[in-house]
Amino acid sequence: MKIIDLYIIKKYLGTFGFMLGLLTIIVLIIDVQAKAPRIESNGFTVGEFLIDFYPYWIINLIITFMSILVFISVIFFTSRIANNTEIVAIISSGASFHRFARPYLMTSGFIAVLALLINHFVLPLANIKKNELEPYTYNAKSREEFTGNAEIATQLSKTEYIFIKSYNKKEKRGSGFIYQKLDKNRKLIYQLIANEFYWQKDKKHFVLNSYLEKTITKDESEKLGNGDSMTKSFGHPPEELFPDVLLGQNKTTPELIKFIDREKEKGNANLNSYLNELYQRTSMPVSVIILTFLGLSLSSQKKRGGLGVNLAIGIALAFVFVFSFEVLKVVSENKTLPPLLAIWLPNIIFAPVALYLYFKRANQ
């Protein structure tokens, strides 16, 4: 069976590699053509994006569609060897269906482990590069959310808050700055107001210009102070203090867990998008194994209609999987479902279906 194992593994990886390359080329060409006008209107060239953006974007694309490509690849090559009666010959030689399925498990396990490592440690580094330029591929309204001025309200801890009238994330400066600190009874004990402020990256602190500070003592008297300029550190850079939806993508899993824990300590209740990012890094690789066995079960018998029927079923199920996954992410961000349940629900549903069809096929 070792020869047959190697034969199936080569078929699996060869078909998967071909599908991966084909998808990458097609989607890359379509995406570049669609986004070229926006790229050039923002002062960049397509050549610059092909070097500084798309290599990292492709890594994200591959990971996003990996489980679906695996599913379609398994259906494609398994249907072909089933139609050639190769599976019948292998089973007739005395091998059980479970033994025949072993190379599928080995290969899908290898891909899943590789995807886990990439998801948790490599993809975030690629996303840092990707997300620096991605806003310049958006339309003007969407781009403004990441590169323009925005009003900020954030909680530093259970008793500390920052409010900013206008803040530019790209330049890391703004106007209308207010910092407030409360006591355990939720009464104001300190307030700092500045007309303008900016972040000094080399010294890792904010510079506040034209500031006014007020301290309220225990006897409720007020002490006022003002000046032209002062420096203030809040313990973290602006990206951490004023996070956007892309921040979670840029952090390796240990960094993301620390960030989520810190936000929980601060009392931040808007963490579902970051929790979705954390949980999907594991759930998507696991789906590779589930969809492999689902594809094997659906395509390992010769059917009337052959490859076309199996591919049609596979593409339909792949669409259902991807659609349900994306819908559940939105549902989770709206706090209708807990993130852990929402992200794992497609696997929870598809895993019993895959097991049932697999054992049904094995017992035939």
Rank of each mutant, 00 (worst) to 15 (best):
G227Y: 14
G225S: 11
K181R: 15
Y274M: 08
W199Q: 00
D261L: 14
H205Y: 13
D183A: 12
E220R: 13
I260Q: 01
T215S: 10
F206H: 10
S283W: 01
R281E: 01
S221E: 11
Q191W: 03
Y211G: 02
S273M: 10
L212D: 05
E196M: 04
T253I: 07
N250V: 07
K181F: 13
Y279W: 03
Q280W: 07
F242V: 05
F242T: 01
K214W: 04
Y198L: 07
I193R: 05
K201I: 12
V245M: 15
G248W: 02
W199E: 00
Y190T: 00
P254Y: 01
K214Q: 13
L208F: 03
K181V: 14
G248M: 06
Y274C: 08
A269M: 15
K258L: 09
S210T: 12
Y190P: 00
G225K: 06
Q191A: 13
L256S: 03
E240M: 13
I260N: 02
D228H: 13
Y198A: 04
S233E: 04
D202W: 01
K181E: 15
L247I: 08
L256V: 04
D219G: 15
N185P: 05
E265Q: 10
T217L: 06
E255Q: 08
K204Q: 15
D228K: 14
V207C: 03
A194T: 01
E239D: 11
A269E: 14
Q280R: 10
P238K: 05
N250D: 13
D261F: 14
K232F: 14
V245D: 15
L271Y: 00
F259W: 07
E277D: 06
E263L: 09
N250Y: 02
Q280H: 07
K214D: 06
W199N: 00
D183Q: 10
E220C: 11
L256E: 03
N270F: 15
I257V: 10
E277V: 07
N185R: 12
